[in-house]
């Protein structure tokens, strides 16, 4: 039995009839046409599908679209303002934090959550903060460097919107 879902992705409202079994990542890619969110593993290990749902990073391959009904989503496509890259995107570029680029959108979204909760993380905290995102190209060396660089830039007066700790849980 199909269900009507509506959600806001990067500020745009989407509404569709979907099968309950439709995974959120497939909704985002196929119904909303936003293909920057990737699928890498199917078992919620690799993090390539990481997006933000109501301010929390989630693996969109392990959420049903119906569970996101009414939610506010942010995907990699929503980070840049026009051609102005988000500091994390800029830092990944500057620090050579990507090679094939397949894991990159999820990695950046995970890093964004990390910095929202911990604006000045240590190397170890960065490594633990992205432990749910696998990269096979970079050895993570330049990813960690990029997150350090972005933290510095964002700490130097760039806006910081997300609260440092979790808001009370979203239930609708």
């Amino acid at each position: 039995m199909r269900q009507r879902v509506s959600m806001t992705i990067n500020g745009t409202n989407y509404e569709h009839e979907v099968e309950p079994r439709l995974l959120l990542v497939h909704y985002i890619r196929e119904q909303a046409g936003l293909t920057g969110t990737h699928v890498g593993c199917d078992t919620s290990n690799c993090g390539a599908c990481t997006i933000e749902m109501d301010g929390h990073s989630v693996k969109a391959c392990t959420v049903f679209a119906v569970q996101a009904n009414g939610s506010q989503l942010l995907t990699i496509e929503g980070l840049a303002q026009g051609t102005q890259l988000h500091p994390l995107q800029q830092a990944f570029w500057d620090e050579h934090g990507l090679q094939c680029g397949y894991c990159t959108p999820g990695m950046i979204m995970a890093a964004r959550q990390l910095l929202a909760r911990n604006p000045d993380p240590t190397e170890k905290e960065i490594r633990m903060g992205i432990e749910g995102n696998l990269c096979r190209c970079t050895g993570y060396h330049n990813i960690v460097k990029a997150i350090q660089a972005a933290a510095k830039v964002m700490g130097e007066g760039a806006e910081r919107k997300a609260p440092a700790t979790a808001p009370s849980a979203r239930r609708d």
Binding site: S44, T50, V58, A110, Q113, L114, G132
Partner: peptide
Amino acid sequence: IGDAQVRNR
């Protein structure tokens, strides 16, 4: 437990 994304859900 798991990782940050898993802990969020």
